[in-house]
Design a protein around this nucleic acid. Structure first.
Lengths: 222, 222
DNA sequence: CCTATCTATACGGTTTACCGTAAAAGCAAA
DNA sequence: TTTGCTTTTACGGTAAACCGTATAGATAGG
């Protein structure tokens, strides 16, 4: 099997162009490009209605917002919507992010078929991913291929991310506790929050909360 | 004046390629590419020694680290070193970051000649910047062109920056006080530090220290 | 020289973060 | 159901951050 009709969704024009180059050098010429997630969704929808659907979407995850106020503001939202509506569409994510948690989530829970890291060898890996994904297998860049290996111990989950995010927004640990309780999310006691933060501080070698937020921001975790 | 010999420094291969395309379509063919800041520095140094120097560097700011442990790990460090050693070299930054403080700093204090945002029209703007910078003027992408307008500038001095920086490294206010005393820097009492932080927290509408560090990191202030 | 003003510092009280310990709840295998 | 393990929660003490107020020093204008 080979992909015939491909949509590229990336807000950076140069990336879109280079992805198109990779596709063409793999013999794929029926290509369209979008720079917004809304636009991508509409194009896919229209293609479906026109009986000329895409077989593959290559998309970034993070998009800068501009004057248009977008409905779908991130690649992840786009993917969530697409996997509901068009489960047959193959999706390759092409992103700077290399967090295992995110990768695992997209592959396991969103049925993403490939995850290629924009990096020094991004183009080459993207080319390889086309063949792998076309043959029905999942492709992962080497940097993130351990995402699917079970349990590489020291890992952070969505709760951790949420926690650090709320801290970075200036909430106190007690306020966070209240917030979680009001949303009926499970670990919500101040004590649990403290314990979790403690683990994270050890993991990231942070001296205090401020340091932890600083480090995770640098890592692009939040 | 026109640029003859250009070095492109970007860790993402596709970007390097697309920048090269832009240069060639502007009639510049003497192009070299690097994917590491160390490599870029060495290449520029060598070219200088060989009496065949570059007249322009186009570089990203953030680079992923890999197995090589780099000396210069960011574009900013590279630029700092270059403006010391080769003040005549023109530099255009091509980056995702669009924080005004960062841009202002690079233009004012590092003598960077152009700042182009990697964005939906990044390639087009990069092409325009070549002509503007070649004619001796500074080029700024529309998103960041207000960086040079003095209006948007709140009065934050070096002490403030130093303070927030130390906080982001995990030091307590007392440790910072000790540190400043040991360096004989003037406001150094815990009380002064508290007062200064208070002013900053009001200025940036921060709830606490963690929030303050988070906000200033987002602004690119530190 | 005196005074108004601004800055640095000192101090005490309150809140929040930090850290250890321990009980309670959830869960899976025997 | 019992047992053992893990996770969540509770609590108490210490350290640090937070906040108001007050004194000391430095500076500029009269």
């Amino acid at each position: 099997m080979k992909f015939n009709r491909v949509l590229i969704n990336d807000d950076h024009d140069a990336i879109g162009e280079s992805v198109a180059q990779v596709l063409m050098s793999n013999g794929i010429t029926n290509i369209e490009k979008t720079q917004y997630c809304d636009e991508a969704y509409l194009k896919i929808k229209k293609a479906e209605l026109d009986q000329d659907p895409f077989d593959l979407l290559i998309t970034d995850l993070s998009f800068k917002s501009d004057y248009r106020n977008d409905n779908l503001s991130s690649g992840e939202e786009l993917i969530t919507k697409l996997t509901q509506d068009y489960p047959d569409l193959a999706i390759i994510v092409y992103s700077m992010k290399d967090q295992l948690q995110k990768v695992r989530f997209l592959i396991k829970n969103r049925g993403v078929n490939g995850y290629v890291c924009k990096d020094r060898k991004g183009s080459k890996e993207l080319g390889e991913s086309l063949n792998v994904v076309a043959s029905g297998k999942a492709y992962l860049s080497p940097q993130v291929c351990k995402a699917l290996q079970p349990k590489s111990n020291m890992e952070i989950d969505d709760f951790d991310i949420r926690l650090i995010n709320l801290l970075s927004k200036g909430m106190s640990q007690e306020e966070i506790s209240e917030d979680l309780k009001s949303k009926n999310l499970k670990p919500s006691s101040l004590s649990s929050i403290e314990k979790r933060l403690n683990r994270l501080k050890i993991q990231f070698k942070a001296n205090n909360t401020t340091h932890l937020v600083s480090i995770t921001k640098d890592l692009g975790l939040i």
